[in-house]
Every structure is written in C-alpha cells, then in structure tokens.
Design a protein around this nucleic acid. Structure first.
Lengths: 340, 340
DNA sequence: CTGAAAGCGCTTACAG
DNA sequence: CTGAAAGCGCTTACAG
C-alpha cells in the first residue's frame, strides 16, 4: 500500500507538502507541485479514507436508511434510492446503504461509529423511533416523509393532502360524483405511514366541499391478492365512476383487472393514480397520475443534508419542512362519468 | 464524542483493557469486565470506525458497484442489490452502494482509498474494464455475471446457455416447432452483456438438435417501444406458436399486448420468460419462467467474498466460477402448439 | 515557500 | 490478569 510518506520520499519533500499539494490549502512552488504530482501518479497514490476520517472527522459518506418492507412496493422505493445516490455522487459523497430491519440499531451503529457525515431516512413513520436518535446524533439528518415531530432534522415530502384534493378536483371537473379511493394496506397506517391518511383526508375534505362522494378502502400491496381485491371492490361499488389509487400495486394490477372485466379507461371508468412518471413508464401504466416525485425528493434531501454537513447551514439553524406540490400528469384516463 | 479514553477513565482501567473487553482477545477479570461494560453503556461508547480501520486495515464495508443503465430494467437490478445487502448485513458488513456511471474510476476510488474490504460487481460486461483494476486491487472481488476472463476474482452467474436449452426443451415437449426468442436490446450486447447471446446460443443449439426452428430478435427494454415491437414481431411471424423472453420489459408488456390482440396464453400462444419468482410476483406475470435467481446469486457472491476477506480462503487460492443451474417454474403458460 | 511535530482514536505486541 | 507504549496514515497549527 502506498502512503503519503512514499510520495514524499519520491518527490524529495515532506509529508506535509504532499498533503498541501492535494488540498491546495497552501501556496506551493510550481516545481514542487509538479514533482509531487508526478510521484503520486507514478506510485498510484490515493489518500487512506480511514486515516483522513480520523484526522478530519469527515468521511464524505452519507448513510441511507431504507427498508424493503413487505407491505410496500419495492420498485417504488428504488426511485428514492436512485435520487439519493445520484445527487450524493454529484456532490462528492458516497452512500452507505443500510437496509437493516432494525432501523434504530442500524442508525445508532453508523452514526455513533462515525461511518457517515449525515443520514437520509426513507420509509419515515409518523412516530419514527429513529428520529429521536437522529436528533441526538452529531451528524445532521434529512427525512423523506413527514413525521409528527420533525424538530432537529430537515423534512421533505410530497404534499399528500393536496395530492388528494387534486385527484378529486380532476374527477369532479370531468363530472364524476361517486369515486373510490384505494389506499395502501392498513398495515402501512399501523406502522405509521401517515401519507396514507393524509392523502385520504385531502380527498375527503375536498369531496365534501364539492358535494361529491368518495368511498375509501385499504387494499393489499402484493400480487395476486391486490387483483382479487380490485375485483371485489368494483363489485361492491357499482355506482363508482372514478378510481383514485394511492397504492402502487393496485395501479400495476388494474390494467389486468379491467381487461378481465372487459372494461377500459376512460371509456368505462376514469382512473387517477399517485406515482411517478418513471414508475408509469416502467410499468406501462396508461393512467393519469399525480406525480410523487421520488427523484426530486431524494435530491432535495441530499442537497440540504450536504449543506448542513459542510456548514453552509449551521447545525441548529431553522429546520426545513418542505412539502412538494403535486403535479397532475394527464394520460387521458379521465373522461366523462359513466355508470358501468 | 466519547472515546475509548473516556471509558477507560470512568472504569478506572487502561485503554487497552477497554479494547480487550470488547474484542474478547484476552482474559479479563469479571469485575473489570463489568466496570468497563457499565462505563461504556453509561457513556454510550461506540468505537470510531475510521480509527479502527486505520489500525486494523479492516472497514467491515463491502463496495457494491451497480449501475442503472437505460437499456436494462431497473426493478430487475434491485433484486441483486437486495440479495447483496441482506447477506452482507447478516455477515456483519455494511454496503457502500456506488452507482457512478464511470465504473472504473469509482472502483479505483473505493479500493485505493481503502473504504471497503472487498467489492461486488454487478452489470458485468464480457470485457469489463473494471475487472483488471479489481484484479490488481488488494481487496478481493466477486462478480455477478460471467466475463471472458474471470481470473483473480470469484464469478457467479446463471447458466444462461442451459436456460436457453431448457426453454426450448419445455416448448418442444409440448409440441412446438416454431418459436421466437426475444432478447434484450442489441445495445446490451454491444456493451458486452454476454448473457444475451449465451442464452440465445443455448436456444439455437438445442433447437437444431431437436430439429425445431427458433427465430431471434432483439427488442427494446423500455415502454412503450417494447409494446409496439411485440406487435410487429407477432405480425411478422404468424407461424410462431411459442414465445421465449430474455427481456424483462417484454415480459411485463406482453400481457397488455396479448389482450390488445385478443389472445391469451397458453390457449393461443405459449410463453416462457427468464426472470425471478419475485419479479413474476411484483409484475403479476402469468407466464412460466426460467428462474434467474438474483437473490441467490447476490448471496453467493457476498458469502464467498467475505470468506476471502476473512482469510478462510487465501487471496490467491483457486478462484471460483460458479454457474447456477436454471430452474423451470411452471405457471401454466405452455400448452399444445396452435397456429393463431 | 517548506518542514518537523503533534495528535485524531484505535489495537496489539511487549512487559510485568 | 493488566498497563504503557508504539504506530496505523493522515492534516494542520507552529515555526522558520
């Protein structure tokens, strides 16, 4: 292994000079600079990350705590992860991906041991047990997902109530008066997945204001159960003319279900989902949707986290809670209301 | 920040004793052990990862080099990543997820700086430029994917030629004589994605032996292009009674295409895909398939890597190249041959 | 413009 | 059974 001493010896300078050549924190004569650069290149020198971390208390690594839960849809999670890793790399950080089912233990491990300079939390629950730990950690934290108490961390999430309102408005504008909202499984709510009822409440509130009816149901997030459930729900609600989906698995299963029933959107039924453009593309989903912006949220979280890490924003300056406005993406699946 | 010195002071022992209590590498009297444990707990001590790495030359981190390429299907990649992270954690390792588009630079960065104890490479190309670098690195490496020259690293992959043969055999057994194999886009082959032609050659060879005909076509890996392409291919090959899919996007788009044409499997057309059980579940794919075993391959790679890291297998002892036998998963989409 | 030295927080051979 | 000391490879205040 080649160390800074090897480079110094070969270039005929001190170790500190080598260090300064790389950091640029000191004026170095052109000749010395060149000698050092040559020596480093010839020997293939790269600074030892552990030594540098020990000395500077900086690892240039961000911890990403993500879980692939049974009741959530893994491909949807992936997009947040991509947003985080891509942005981190652009800002010069690597990502430690921690998927340990015991989130609090994993968080403590990576922060206490100082493996990371900051942490991004995904799958945030309303009373997420990781948040108090993160608040007490010396590293800053950013969440994707809105908890009850986001003090001490920066929070980024989709404005789910607004997403719910938007869905209803789009349907009502097209003349619908009876809709069905299909949410994630109730397990997600029990686990503290607040986005489920936040979107639902937005729907219900707007529906009341506009004098229309929205039924609500939790539904499985796995195939094939979700398909059967969709059939049952359609049977139970013959008056429904519009479907609102806050459940990615339901969105992916719906084309097959409609086919089996000989229905199509928007001719027989209008549909609006809540998922990202990329998700729609990957799953060839033909439904209009409210954009969930996972890549954007991941990017925001990392950008603000790096700001705090690098001290542009002091550790205790005002914390952000930013709700991203949902955007409606029209794919033509909302038409006039028709009883099936 | 609480260090080993703080614990030593509080427990009234030397720093070395504290260290030995944690490592268990030395007999410690029960009283001292208890005092140290109490002090550590009270102060919330965790060893500094950078200091430990510097001293021991071990980080307990595995580098995972993965790319989300446009011409491959991201949700399929995810399963390899899950296999790797889950297994790593079970064996006591964290995972540094590196998705940098410049693979060689990223690999050099994480190995030369000693951020990781070993590396797993995904998206392995036939002449992957990362492999010579990995061979020269001091850390061991494991690949998921078969390169032309796997010397110096452990290699794990599905036995793709056998997968191709198996697909043909299953079809022929059901009476099919004219099939169409739909592969990943040609870009993947150009990039060195050897599995594409390995599976194809297996198909073709077995087809010749059995005296049947297999057409072949590259197809896009993105929606909606893949859907149109499937329509065109079915138009072009009216004599085909069996479809073989080595293209995940094609598998996910096919149900919609069949529906649009008023066809169903296996009544009108028999279908066999190449994807994992989990993938079939997530995308509700009704087609029989040859299992691609991403979780198993990820697990194997990590297990062998950790073996090398921990010295159970010396760095230069015989390298493994293990091809996992494909398994046929019958979902009932192969029936008697019928001209459409 | 450059160097010698201290010290970050650990682990482990050496000594008792 | 326990401690004092060396040293891993860096960076940076101190000194010139």
């Amino acid at each position: 292994m080649v160390t800074i001493s090897d480079v110094a010896k070969r270039a005929g300078v001190s170790r500190s000079t080598v260090s300064y050549v790389f950091s640029g924190r000191r004026a170095i004569s052109p000749e010395v600079r060149a000698r050092v650069a040559d020596a480093a290149r010839e020997l293939g020198y790269t600074a030892n990350a552990g030594a540098r971390a020990l000395r500077t208390s900086q690892t240039r690594v961000i911890g990403l705590l993500a879980q692939f839960l049974d009741d959530e849809f893994a491909p949807a999670m992936l997009q947040y992860i991509q947003g985080v890793t891509d942005t981190a790399r652009k800002l010069g950080y690597d990502v430690l991906l921690v998927t340990d089912p015991d989130g609090p233990a994993a968080l403590r491990r990576v922060t206490d041991s100082r493996m990371v300079d900051g942490v991004v939390l995904l799958n945030v629950a309303e009373d997420d047990p990781r948040i108090p730990l993160l608040r007490n950690a010396e590293q800053p934290g950013a969440l994707v997902g809105l908890p009850r108490d986001g003090a001490g961390v920066d929070v980024f999430d989709l404005d789910f109530p607004e997403a719910g309102r938007l869905m209803v408005e789009q349907m009502v504008e097209a003349g619908h008066e009876e809709m069905l909202l299909i949410s994630q499984p109730h397990d997600v709510v029990e686990r503290g997945g607040a986005y489920v009822w936040r979107l639902r409440d937005g729907c219900m509130q707007r529906a009341e204001q506009l004098g229309v009816r929205v039924h609500h149901s939790f539904a499985p997030s796995r195939a094939p159960e979700i398909g059967e459930c969709l059939h049952d729900l359609l049977d139970e609600h013959p008056g429904v003319t519009g479907l609102l989906l806050n459940n990615e698995a339901a969105a992916t299963a719906l084309p097959g279900v409609l086919h089996q029933r000989g229905l199509s959107a928007p001719d027989d039924l209008s549909v609006i989902g809540r998922y990202s453009e990329e998700f729609a593309r990957v799953f060839s989903l033909p439904f209009s949707s409210v954009e969930s912006a996972p890549d954007f949220l991941g990017r925001l979280a990392v950008q603000h986290l790096v700001h705090r890490i690098e001290g542009q924003r002091p550790h205790d300056s005002a914390y952000i809670a930013r709700l991203v406005a949902p955007v409606f993406r029209d794919r033509g699946s909302v038409g006039p209301a028709k009883r099936i």
